[in-house]
Structure formats: structure tokens, C-alpha cells
Nucleic acid binder design. Sequence first.
DNA 1: ACAACATATTGACAATCTTCAATATAGATG
DNA 2: CATCTATATTGAAGATTGTCAATATGTTGT
Lengths: 121, 121
Amino acid sequence: MASHDITERERGARCCADGVTLSLSMAEAQQVSDDLHVLGHPVRLLILDVLAQYAGKVCVCDLEAAVPVKQPTVSHHLRLLREAGLVDAERHGPWMYYFIRHEALEALRSRITRMLALFEG
Amino acid sequence: MASHDITERERGARCCADGVTLSLSMAEAQQVSDDLHVLGHPVRLLILDVLAQYAGKVCVCDLEAAVPVKQPTVSHHLRLLREAGLVDAERHGPWMYYFIRHEALEALRSRITRMLALFEG
DNA sequence: ACAACATATTGACAATCTTCAATATAGATG
DNA sequence: CATCTATATTGAAGATTGTCAATATGTTGT
């Protein structure tokens, strides 16, 4: 084989050549990653699903009925959703009524959508 | 207070009343949750970002340069992405060239988008 | 065959997440 | 105030995840 023939090594010569550019900063990646984490649990998805249907009228016992975990676990997931700003709650007598914070959910949705769009051909 | 007045307890009387309906099945919630997990790490997001820009031309060393973790960790994340079907790779000489599987990414994107749409007012 | 390189795998460790029983808090009722 | 109900918090145990050093595997050029 003549030395000017293209070898495997030469063909791959682009490899590791110049600096790879990113359209996502580390901070953005971290933010979206946090977003995805909050959503990334079946129980939390089901909770949001219920909340979306019975806007402003859902007490914890309704949520307990909808998911296959015990009450302290429901409470735990509600706290995570609340800390993420996706839901909030009001007390009415003995009950807590949870509801979706639509602006926050919309913002999160838009961040995720924008990120997914980056990956499209 | 007359006994027919609305008490806190009565006002909340809807609580726990009838069966709450879900538009998401447990299996669907689990599927989307898995989807979100694969995406839910900054390093994997950055990897997908790079792959999206240099379609079919990215060797592992390029990816190593783009993310703040060591080579075995890059390899680990690539494996997760691959097992999820989101990327695949071809060997060219000593190098592995990774690329996005766009149909798979599109399917995932559509599942996530559909789910987020459920939660909109 | 050997040396040099690119990538994958293994194994270990630390950190984080999920769950639940037990317990605490808070409001409503008698 | 005593008690009941609804929800939150605590603490502990197990599972999962992220990371890397060390090592293995596979490829190329000598």
C-alpha cells in the first residue's frame, strides 16, 4: 500500500482535531437536568396528572387514592414538587388542596422543549 | 352557628368523594419517567448536544473534551444512551463514532411533549 | 510479536433517592 | 380540653446513580 493511501488513522484524522463547540452551557444543562429530575418519577407524573384534571380541588387523600404508595411517600413527592415551584397548596379546614402553578410548569415545559429542539436534525 | 351553616368540613366535603380518574396509566407514567431519566443528566445532555452538531462524526475523545468528567464516565453515559436506543456507534479504525438515532429521539420527544401537554390548563 | 493508542469494562466508594413505620403537628368537633 | 382526622416530618433501610482508578479489549503501525 502506497504511503499516500488513506489509512484508517488518516481517515479518522478529524478526530480530536479542533475544539468542539457546545450550544448548551453547563449551567443550562444543569437547569434542564434538574427540571427533568422533578418530572422523572412515575408517582410525581401521576400526581401532576390528577392535579391537572381537578384544578384547585385536590386534597392529599385524593392523591393517595391515585398512586400506589403510602401517605408519607405522597407527602414527600408533594414536597419535592412544591420546592420545585411546580405546585402549591392551600389549607381549607383539615385538608390541604394542592394545585399546579401553571406559569412555573409552562416555564419548565418551555425549557425542556427548547432543549429537545436543539437535538433535532 | 346554626347546624345547617357550611362548616369547614362540609365545604371540603368533596374530598375523597368519588374515584379520581387518571389520563395516564401507570405503564405510561413509567415509560415517560424512564425517558426523562435518560435525559436527566447534564453530561448526557452535553453529549447529545455535541452529537447533534457533528452528526455522525464524533469520536469519544471529542466528547471527552466537551464534558467535565473522565473517560470511563463518558463511556458509562454513552452506554446508557445507547441502551436507551438514543444513540448508536460505528467503529472506524481505532475510533468509535457515535451518532444520534433520530427516530428514537423523535419518539421520546413526542412522548414527553404529549405528557407535558396533558398538564396544561 | 510488540508498542502505542482508543475505548470499554470492572469494582469500589460516596452520594442521592425511594419508601415506610412511627411520630408530630394542626384543625375540627364534642 | 380530649379526641378524631388530615397531613407533615423524622429516621432508618435498601436501591440506584455517578464517578474514577485500574484493567481489559481491540486496532494500528513498526
